[in-house]
């Protein structure tokens, strides 16, 4: 696998943790971040699925094969971000569900009001 340099800024205590953990695990810092990213994506992919327009089969990958999932998500994520989408927060999800439920109730009332 080709690796390139990526400079990112993050808290000092986490930089120290990264060095310690990489030494402890016997991995390079890059490998450790790669594993962490794959694990993060795998753990959250069900929350992304609908927003990214993926099927259940698309995301049905064992945690041991999380790397495959990252590859499958990449294009969908690029498209979603280009369309202004983002991973919704819990509050946004609740608001969306309530909005749709209210719309359904209004529709039911409207349909009931129409004479047969």
């Amino acid at each position: 696998m080709a690796r390139t340099t990526k400079s990112i800024r993050f808290a000092e205590e986490h930089q120290e943790l990264l060095k310690l953990l990489a030494a402890f695990e016997g991995l390079s810092e890059g490998e450790l971040v790669e594993h962490a990213l794959e694990s993060f994506v795998h753990g959250r992919v069900l929350a992304y699925r609908k927003t990214l327009g993926l099927s259940r089969d698309d995301v049905d990958v064992r945690i041991e094969d999380a790397g495959e999932l990252v590859a499958r998500l990449r294009d969908a994520m690029v498209r979603a971000i280009a369309e202004g989408a983002h991973a919704p927060s819990e509050d946004e999800i609740k608001a969306g569900l309530r909005e749709r439920a209210a719309a359904r109730r209004e529709q039911a009332v409207a349909e009931a009001a129409v004479p047969a």
Binding site: G43, L46, A47, K94, L97, R100
Partner: peptide, 18 residues
């Protein structure tokens, strides 16, 4: 339309469905 999965960023080991 009436359900969504949600996983808090800090969560490991479970998935919430609202």
């Amino acid at each position: 339309d009436f359900w969504e999965a949600h996983v808090p960023p800090y969560a490991h080991g479970y998935v919430n469905y609202l």
